Computed example of a mutant assay.
Amino acid sequence: FFQPPYVRFLHALVAVLVILQILSSSAMHMVAGHFAPGPGTWLASRYHLGAGLATVLFSLLLAAATLTRHGLRHFFPYLWGDTDQLKKDVLASLRLNMVPPRPRGLAAAVQGLGLGALLLTVLSGLLWFILWRHGSDFSRAALIVHKGVAPLMAVYLIGHGGMALLHFAVWQRKTRP
């Protein structure tokens, strides 16, 4: 509700694409640098590659829109030693109080971590794809990195989605007449 419509659209689109990427990745298998035989594996692998490229594009657009609007310090205040709001939000959360989103606060810092996980995942996947298409010996290493960082995105998706639903439920309860 606090974002412009185009950012909300990009956010929702990226969330759906990430969910579909996670689901399709479990059916994707490669043998000696080629897709494993079998129609289901081949289809899942081709889908994962194509949708992955779209996910890269829309993730970069979302990151650019978000960072242009707020700047790095909004999401990563601790990198500048600016932790006052973050400390206040963490203490309030430990007292089981719902913390509203605010600049340099807990929600913004968590969103920054999600943005980092998203960019690590899509860019490592893109790097693997480029190296794989060019037959590079480094493609296997890039795939290992991609498979290593992708679970961060899955964990973030579950945590972020769960907290969003919790905040929405509390907000609904407070706004009922």
Rank of each mutant, 00 (worst) to 15 (best):
S25F: 10
S25C: 07
S25R: 14
S26C: 02
A27K: 10
M28K: 15
H29C: 00
H29I: 11
M30S: 01
A32E: 14
G33D: 08
H34D: 06
H34Y: 03
A36F: 08
A36I: 06
A36G: 08
A36E: 14
A36D: 11
P39G: 08
P39C: 06
G40P: 05
S45D: 02
S45K: 06
S45E: 01
R46I: 04
L49H: 07
G50D: 07
G50P: 07
G50K: 05
A51T: 12
G52K: 11
L53N: 01
L53Q: 02
L53A: 04
A54C: 03
A54G: 00
A54Q: 02
A54P: 06
T55M: 15
V56S: 01
L57W: 08
L57M: 08
S59W: 02
S59Y: 03
S59R: 06
L61D: 06
L62V: 04
L62H: 00
L62G: 01
A63M: 10
A64R: 15
A64F: 12
A65S: 14
A65P: 09
A65E: 09
H70R: 15
G71F: 09
L72F: 10
R73G: 10
H74N: 03
H74M: 03
F76C: 11
F76N: 01
F76T: 09
P77Q: 05
Y78F: 15
Y78E: 15
Y78A: 12
Y78H: 13
Y78C: 11
L79W: 13
W80M: 06
G81T: 00
G81P: 04
D82G: 04
D84W: 07
Q85K: 02
L86H: 00
D89Y: 03
V90R: 08
L91S: 10
L91F: 10
A92W: 09
A92C: 12
S93A: 09
S93Q: 00
L94F: 10
L96W: 14
N97K: 15
N97T: 08
